[in-house]
Design a protein around this nucleic acid. Structure first.
Lengths: 262, 262
DNA sequence: ATCAGAGTCTTGTTTTACAGGACAATAGGT
DNA sequence: ACCTATTGTCCTGTAAAACAAGACTCTGAT
């Protein structure tokens, strides 16, 4: 891992970093950016920004938006498909997730953690729910709220989990959101003993979640399977049953994963 | 599938281009790349390649693969979600596509063209088909084969279509694949008159497709809707009926698109 | 007609990214 | 135990590549 404690990070702004940073400017509310905005954000001359933009357009990571500006290009979708395949999770997990979704008639999610963020890698939905729990592939979730995030933290070394939680900005989403690191750490210990997590209204007031860990051939936790349901539809007495089912599904996926990996 | 283009142009490789090129090294058969392979492919020193790699890992476009090497990171899935939203197609199109898929009990695709490539942007699948037509989001299709590709070419100026077809490498996928530019151009004219396209076994011997154009508020063709079905399940007499239904769906999507855009 | 903003190019200057090589750690082969 | 081939990290002097500035075109608004 790290050679010494002092990680002398190089000046974070190389040419490549800046080009990549452009891709990070896009958000749900900012689907189109202009060259001038890019120059400003990057702190470079306009001509320089356009040079980057050209590289990105040439490789189709960006395309010109109708009516001016730039938006994300189809290349992004191409490599996203490959990214999904890279993890080796989806092919194996999706059938089991679909079965679970149909069984409990709720949305089932497969998530992975990257740094301080949890990303939805796959989703299975029950046929015709009146209310939609709308997490898509690529949606990001916070570290401190949601059943899946807690599971993904529970099985890494405590010191790592603490460091992550301390460096992340723990936003409050609802009155029930946990933002205190010590409280969260206790919660993780509890989850580790139980083997699953249950949350209620910590991320979205009306939603509850139940999650369990997926392990690879080395028994490392590499993902989480979770059920996301309208909180009012699931009485506390029913939680145990859901937990059993998610754990069962997670175990099934883990087994197939080790079978493939070995 | 086809290998990527062989090492060719060292013409205008800026630093940003090279960093981006790393992302293009990944293919279905090459889900993990090593630093040495990157250096070789880019034609730079190993230390330089690793510098790029660090930038990509820091921004989470890549992550270290278990057991060495690098693979695509979760950031790619994050921005792919945004890319999908950028086009404003999916939200509007998916309900209509699902309806069509359930009606005809076949796979329905939404595709866009970028340069010499057609990319699947969305998909709706009939519940429980025994045979799966397995195009996913992000899958790429050639310009010269498949009903959708022909539709996407038919409504751009003839000279542009010809130039695209001439510069693309028109591979032969089956005996029925068209690779002659003049023949293809005649085909496009025919499709333009008919308002839809039908192909049989030109891309995959056992598959047939029917496609129709989706237009934005300016009446520009921005996407194609297509039905992909097992060829043996669809008799020639049934083609007209399918064509009518795809056109109807495409028109419906176009109308909602103009309603939103205006 | 005028203005503001987007996007494109060229040029001279110097900043920045490069190659090469030393180094550590790991895995496989003998 | 050895040796060899890999992967990934870090440092330094050099020179090549990227930079800022500004001139230019083309829009669409007012």
């Amino acid at each position: 891992m790290s050679g010494t404690a002092s990680t002398s990070y190089r000046e974070r702004n190389s040419t490549a970093d800046r080009a990549l940073d452009i891709l990070l400017m896009f958000t749900d509310t900012h689907l189109v950016v202009s060259g001038t905005a890019v120059a400003e954000r990057l702190g470079v001359a306009r001509s320089t920004a356009y040079r980057y933009l050209q590289s990105l357009v040439n490789s189709r990571f960006l395309e010109e938006a109708p009516g001016g500006g730039f938006r994300l290009g189809l290349r992004v979708m191409e490599i996203a498909r490959l990214a999904r395949r890279s993890y080796g999770l989806s092919e194996v997990a999706l059938p089991a997730m679909t079965t679970l979704a149909e069984d409990v008639r709720e949305t089932v999610l497969l998530t992975r953690r990257t740094g301080e963020l949890v990303v939805c890698v796959d989703r299975a939905e029950a046929g015709t729910g009146a209310v939609r729990i709308s997490y898509e592939r690529g949606s990001t979730l916070p570290l401190n709220a949601g059943a899946a995030a807690l599971v993904l933290l529970a099985w890494i070394p405590d010191e790592d989990a603490r460091r992550l939680l301390e460096s992340a900005d723990l936003r409050r989403f609802t009155p029930a959101t946990l933002t205190d690191v010590d409280t969260l750490m206790q919660r993780l210990a509890h989850i580790r003993r139980a083997g699953y997590s249950v949350t209620r209204g910590e991320l979205d007031a009306d939603v509850m979640g139940v999650a369990a860990p997926v392990r690879d051939e080395k028994q490392q936790v590499v993902a989480a399977v979770s059920i996301a349901a309208l909180a009012s539809r699931v009485f506390p007495e029913a939680e145990a049953e859901l937990a059993r089912k998610v754990q069962e599904t997670a175990r099934e996926i883990s087994e197939r994963l080790t079978a493939v990996g070995g």
